[in-house]
Computed example of a mutant assay.
Amino acid sequence: MSVAGRGLVDRAAETLATGHPIIVTAGAGPSSVADIVIAGQHAGADCVAWAIRYTSGFLCAAMSAGRADKLNLPALRGDGLAKKGIPAYGVGVDAAAGIGTGISALDRAHTVRVLAESGTGPDDLTRPGHVVPIRTAERGVLQQRGAAEAAVDLCMIGGLAPVAITATLLTDAGHLLQGDELAEFADRHQIEMVTVDSVAHHVLRHGTSRRGRLRRLVEQPVNLGVEGPFLIDFADEVTGATHTVMIGHVGPGQNPGQIPKVHVVTACARRQSESEVGDGNSPLDLEAGGFQITEQGGMIIALRDTPELFMAEKFELARGAVVAALRHFGVGRAWVIGWPDGSDRGASRLIDCRPDPKHRRVAAS
């Protein structure tokens, strides 16, 4: 099995990082809705005026519900509507300083840049105003498959502030811009297009930060009376869970041509001791496993669940975490025993994945 490359989503994120707009479609068929997306911190009058020209002119500022709460931007009718696929609009705002009436492209661009600044507080905004926030799901496209969530995730993938302008594309006659007309528009204006599903696929495997999906926390040796292996905890920035990896010799340190074995198990929420990771029914004997991977190489990946609800299946979330762990250690190919496939035991499968570069290739602004 091969792991899909990053090209399409990365190019879209790079485009946002250079201050240019992209198109996000909520589907791949001819009836999909297409939105112009502009990175909030790069919102300029010319780009905003262009977006107004080719859309309804109803410009929204997509941001997480948590960020909106910090700015005192409550939902107009409550977040419950977002669960039905209806955007959770917040109270419209203008920047408190530096604008005129608030309606011009110049003023709205300034307001969105203020919304994107990390130091902005509630007093830096006036209400009501001409820019309408959309309160997005905290975990982005994996919790809500919307264009607004994709826009925020793409900004984070590009290393930008997690605020984005979104506006729905329309024809001159006022209809949704779709199908061949949408393709012709993107080609004429030379704009990158990306689907919400492709962003979700990317986030599952790579996360949204430049560090990748897994962030290394704590490392400790396992006391087996021999050199190695190590237990390493990782924070999963997609699900919020903490996973543990026991690692022997893998990657560049393994024998040439040897494909490491990787055992995937389900762990309890917290390790009960340094010698056991289990789910309460079938504990994993780390001592026996440690001797095995010390002698033969490979790793054991103990995945922990999360109580949060996602639109992605649990086995899809688990697959992404496994691939992220392999990539972290520079493993290009591995035999994965217990590869998540939706069953209780999982499958044994040869997995191919490309290791992460030391630095993400998304261009800085």
Results as ranks from 00 to 15, higher is better:
239 T>L: 04
234 F>G: 03
212 G>H: 06
39 A>N: 06
272 Q>I: 12
97 A>N: 12
266 T>N: 11
53 R>C: 09
335 W>L: 14
17 A>P: 03
83 K>N: 12
181 E>D: 15
294 T>C: 11
36 I>Y: 11
351 I>R: 01
326 L>S: 01
349 R>G: 02
138 E>G: 03
263 H>D: 05
73 L>I: 10
47 C>M: 15
42 H>V: 05
128 P>H: 06
185 F>Q: 04
266 T>R: 11
148 A>I: 03
215 R>S: 12
272 Q>E: 14
53 R>F: 08
316 E>M: 13
156 M>A: 14
60 C>H: 00
307 P>H: 13
47 C>P: 03
215 R>P: 00
123 D>N: 11
246 M>K: 04
139 R>V: 08
44 G>C: 10
344 D>R: 15
82 A>H: 06
114 V>P: 00
341 D>T: 11
79 D>Q: 13
177 L>N: 06
96 A>P: 02
117 E>A: 15
105 A>E: 08
152 V>N: 00
327 R>E: 09
175 H>I: 02
316 E>C: 08
344 D>M: 12
153 D>G: 06
12 A>L: 08
214 L>R: 01
3 V>Q: 05
117 E>T: 13
230 F>I: 05
249 H>F: 06
166 T>P: 02
92 G>D: 02
58 F>H: 11
76 L>H: 00
142 L>N: 11
316 E>Q: 15
262 V>K: 01
134 I>C: 02
19 G>Y: 11
203 V>E: 01
218 V>F: 13
319 R>I: 09
225 G>R: 10
208 T>A: 08
56 S>T: 15
57 G>C: 08
114 V>D: 01
183 A>C: 08
264 V>L: 01
197 D>E: 15
318 A>C: 09
146 G>L: 06
123 D>L: 12
245 V>Y: 06
268 C>N: 14
38 I>A: 06
306 T>C: 10
360 R>C: 10
321 A>E: 03
307 P>W: 10
24 V>N: 04
133 P>K: 02
149 E>Y: 13
236 D>V: 09
208 T>C: 10
189 H>T: 12
270 R>D: 15
12 A>N: 04
215 R>C: 09
42 H>K: 09
279 D>R: 11
352 D>I: 07
161 A>E: 07
316 E>L: 13
268 C>F: 07
65 A>R: 00
297 G>F: 01
351 I>G: 01
100 G>N: 15
241 A>Q: 05
195 T>M: 10
278 G>E: 07
130 H>D: 06
350 L>K: 09
234 F>C: 09
294 T>F: 08
154 L>F: 07
8 L>D: 11
131 V>H: 00
104 S>C: 09
217 L>R: 14
149 E>Q: 14
183 A>Y: 07
271 R>M: 14
104 S>N: 09
318 A>T: 04
157 I>S: 04
176 L>G: 11
333 R>D: 13
163 V>C: 03
344 D>W: 08
186 A>Y: 04
78 G>I: 03
160 L>M: 11
226 V>F: 12
132 V>A: 09
118 S>T: 13
186 A>P: 05
270 R>Y: 11
171 T>G: 10
243 H>L: 10
315 F>W: 15
116 A>F: 01
67 R>M: 06
112 V>S: 02
190 Q>Y: 10
291 F>D: 09
204 L>R: 02
349 R>I: 10
